[in-house]
């Protein structure tokens, strides 16, 4: 066994048809996520049912023309709540994700680009934040500040921003060693401009992939914490909360749990698919660049 066995062979970029297919998948997956979100907003304006209006005479009705998915234990229309719940869950997930990105990216950029003391300080802080699992932080915050979707989002941001900052930092660390960054400096570009124009585009791909994979996790987290009562409070329609509401009627009306459950599962799956597809895409692009 000689040196040749240890030699890594360059993997060829995917064939054209493969790229085209994965692009299609990306679009489909993204569309689906969009659809869920827009349908929820749409439902708010158009559907004739008030999602929070209780009508005890109409409780636990089966499917009908008026209530295609039936009604829940307080007589509220399940379809309306399901659609609106999607908007809640997805909206808060995106809000948490966005906030984590807005905090994490500049932090990582500056730490990776400036290095030295700033970077060491940042790493200490980041390690501190990483020490706590997200669920624990959420539970503790709810205990301190009271249960509610706002505090849940805050908890998610506190936990998640670190991973973006670290990802950005590591990319920037290696990228800013390259000569083109040195050239940019000899050309008198300001640090802010080097970071935004020369380094930011490199991290966009990685961050997007991580974010889309995280989206699924955050949806799941919000739903599960709402399920145990730490997230969305009644009567807000939220998938996890809806699951919890329907628990007592599991024997008689199992579909009440199946609907939100399926909604959660399919949305998380789609978010993960989107992440996978994005990852493939960015990998292919990297491969094509020598």
């Amino acid at each position: 066994m000689k040196t040749m066995f240890l030699r890594t062979r360059r993997i060829r970029p995917e064939s054209k048809s493969g790229t085209r297919k994965s692009r299609l998948q990306a679009i489909v997956a993204a569309l689906f996520v969009l659809l869920v979100a827009s349908a929820s907003v749409y439902a708010f304006g158009v559907l004739k049912h008030d999602p929070t209006l209780t009508d005890l005479r109409a409780r636990l009705l089966g499917a009908s023309a008026l209530h295609p998915f039936g009604t829940d234990h307080l007589g509220r229309d399940v379809l309306t709540r399901l659609l609106l719940g999607g908007g809640q869950t997805l909206g808060y997930s995106l809000l948490a994700l966005g906030a984590a990105l807005i905090i994490g990216i500049p932090f990582g950029l500056i730490a990776g680009y400036k290095r030295g003391r700033i970077d060491r300080l940042f790493m200490r802080v980041a390690d501190g934040f990483l020490a706590f699992p997200d669920t624990i932080v959420a539970i503790v915050l709810s205990g301190l500040l009271g249960a509610g979707i706002g505090n849940l989002v805050l908890a998610i941001v506190i936990v998640k921003w670190v991973s973006y900052a670290r990802l950005v930092r590591s990319t920037v660390l290696s990228e800013s060693q390259k000569d083109y960054v040195a050239v940019a400096r000899t050309n008198g570009l300001s640090d802010a401009r080097i970071m935004s124009r020369h380094l930011l585009p490199h991290i966009a791909g990685n961050v997007l992939v991580l974010a889309s994979l995280d989206l699924g996790k955050i949806i799941l987290l919000i739903s599960s914490l709402s399920y145990i009562g730490l997230g969305a409070q009644p009567p807000t329609p939220e998938w996890g909360a809806m699951l919890n509401d329907s628990r007592p009627y599991f024997q008689s009306r199992p579909e009440l749990m199946v609907y939100p459950g399926l909604a959660i599962v399919s949305t998380v799956l789609l978010a993960n698919m989107l992440g996978d597809v994005l990852r493939d895409r960015f990998d292919v692009k990297k491969e094509a660049q020598p």
Binding site: T3, M4, L6, R7, T8
Partner: peptide, 18 residues
């Protein structure tokens, strides 16, 4: 045969060792 009768050295000396 490789290694014993024919052997190789490559440009990428870093890749030659794990």
């Amino acid at each position: 045969l490789r290694g014993k009768r024919i052997s190789y050295i490559f440009q990428d000396y870093q890749g030659a060792f794990t």
